[in-house]
Nucleic acid binder design. Structure first.
Lengths: 329, 329
DNA sequence: CTGAAAGCGCTTACAG
DNA sequence: CTGAAAGCGCTTACAG
């Protein structure tokens, strides 16, 4: 900026005023133009770190996401992309911190080294201690989860309705022995998929069916093994909900290969809706999430949190379920 | 840091020396311990911006990736994750800038505002002007592409062998009219998929077959339409290479639905290997990329570039092809 | 061995 | 309307 000021023949203060369009400052049009031209010629790019160091507040928002989350928590990743856009439009700098290895206090340390205005991460990266530490540093910790939390302001992306709708569809077909496939039972608070399947189990039981959640990581052997054990033990369910289309497709394929009739013997459906559903035979019945992410404007919740105007009501996004009935249920 | 120094009863300089383990400084063990304890009690986190402002060099490396790239350029995303890990292990801070809307000079401006040591982005985000601008600012611009470039140091992730292997497999089966499906013809320099399919076409032609690249964006209607037009016009190929498993699966499904026999009438295979291949019937023959990303150590190339020791040989990763013959070719 | 001081690139109250 | 000056949190040559 010194170079710009020198070239324009003004002081650094004046250059700063025109480059920042500082409200109070009345700079004659001619001076303004000279500064702007000098900045243009020198390709001046302001140094955001120096600025925030001086101002005492940062315009940086750090989002923490990793490859595993992308796969495991698709919905929250989609949400994060949208949040990032909203936040950038409000004039903040949004950067992703992608180190998958850190959580809790270690994560807090690496975020705080950047002195951001706020940090946005899935709930499982926070602990009580790390939230205290982040808050003490003047940074706003914001979480994303499928369920509200007392720990810190949390953007709720609730995909429970997808699991419930899937279970209710099976109940409507007369299924009484239902398996919810995927996520870790008892870890509903940790993983989106766990929550979705827990909700499916709850809905199935509420409808008078027998239901249990079975952990499953999609793959050919896992699916063949699972179906094999059902047949060997005589515990074949009459309805299966897969946490994702991929989960459901693997079991469907293994069932068909084992000679089980779908949907006559076992109905299968997925609690989400990926294109894969059209590619398997019989075609998979799915539950689509009817939320237009573009309209969600979740960034508004984050911006409110930064400004100390956190409003939990602004931060809840429930994914409305829409049945896509094909051939398997 | 002032707080830490005060609490430990030393000057800020001394605190800085022990906290940074500055080589030249000989600090008595007792003083060291006092400073460390104070830092611990106060949960001191160094302010990286202040540090790099003072030092005149930054330990930040910015990677630019967006959702669309993740889908379109899967390989380079996987590569980027690995690069990020290598760079972090070398003591740098690696952050992702995820704004999909900026390229060229606009992108350069938003990167340079952070004054990073280096920036890493797909080649198509750079222009001659932006490279000059970034270099002038003392930041090292590094690109990723499937092919070398003169513009700036480029990490080459060459997936051409996947396309070639696919075409050669079809040639070996006696196919003479081959379609390479996906990417944009003539845009081989822009997209990985385009490059992969261009290589497939080249290999097919080199083997004496007729071959052409057909743009295709995976989906049920697109596949049905494409197969329908082949049948109507009598232009059914005898071999199809899909740029990805998803591309191939859609065409496979549409062919089977239209009563075409696979592989007898048309052989189909994918120039990558996703789990989906096992889920469709007949099972898709694929080409796996036999590169252990963990062993690629692409970060070494980036680190070399930062240190002004760029070595193109270090930066080329060719994906070795491994045929996974299933039922469709 | 330790501290006082300068300075990285900025912003902003203050004085002229 | 414009400039001199202080100061954000740090590092590091320099003097004691």
């Amino acid at each position: 900026m010194s170079d710009v000021a020198r070239r324009a023949g003004v002081s650094r203060a004046t250059a700063s005023y025109v480059l920042n369009r500082t409200p109070g400052a009345r700079i004659p049009e001619q001076t303004r133009a000279r500064v702007l031209e000098a900045a243009e010629q020198l390709r001046y790019v302001p140094h955001v770190n120096a600025r925030s160091l001086r101002r005492g507040r940062s315009d940086l928002v750090v989002g923490h996401v990793d490859g595993a989350s992308v796969l495991r928590q698709g919905l929250s990743f989609v949400g994060l992309i949208q949040v990032a856009r909203d936040i950038r439009e409000a004039g903040y700098t949004f950067l992703f911190h992608g180190d998958p290895t850190v959580t809790g206090v270690a994560a807090a340390r690496s975020w705080l080294a950047l002195r951001p205005a706020a940090v946005l991460a899935t709930l499982d990266r926070y602990t009580e201690e790390s939230v205290a530490m982040i808050t003490a540093a003047g940074t706003v910790p914001i979480a994303m989860s499928h369920t509200p939390s007392d720990l810190t302001p949390t953007i709720v992306l609730d995909d429970g309705p997808l699991g419930r709708a899937a279970a209710e569809h099976l109940l409507g077909r007369g299924c009484r022995r239902i398996v919810a496939l995927g996520g870790c039972p008892g870890m509903a608070d940790q993983h989106m998929l766990g929550h979705r399947m827990a909700e499916a189990v709850a809905a199935a039981r509420a409808g008078g069916a027998e239901a249990r959640q079975v952990p499953f990581s999609p793959g050919r052997e896992a699916a063949t093994g699972l179906v094999g054990s059902w047949l060997a033990e005589g515990t074949l369910p009459d309805g299966v909900v897969g946490a994702t289309t991929t989960h459901a497709a693997h079991v469907l394929t293994a069932l068909v290969d084992a000679g089980v009739r779908v949907p006559q013997d076992v109905a299968v459906l997925a609690a989400d809706d990926e294109p894969l559903a059209e590619l398997v035979r019989p075609r998979l019945t799915t539950v689509g999430a009817d939320l237009d992410v573009g309209e969600a404007r979740m960034g508004a919740a984050v911006l409110a949190a930064i400004d100390g105007r956190w409003d939990p009501d602004l931060a809840v996004r429930r994914f409305p379920a829409r049945m896509v009935v094909r051939e398997t249920a």
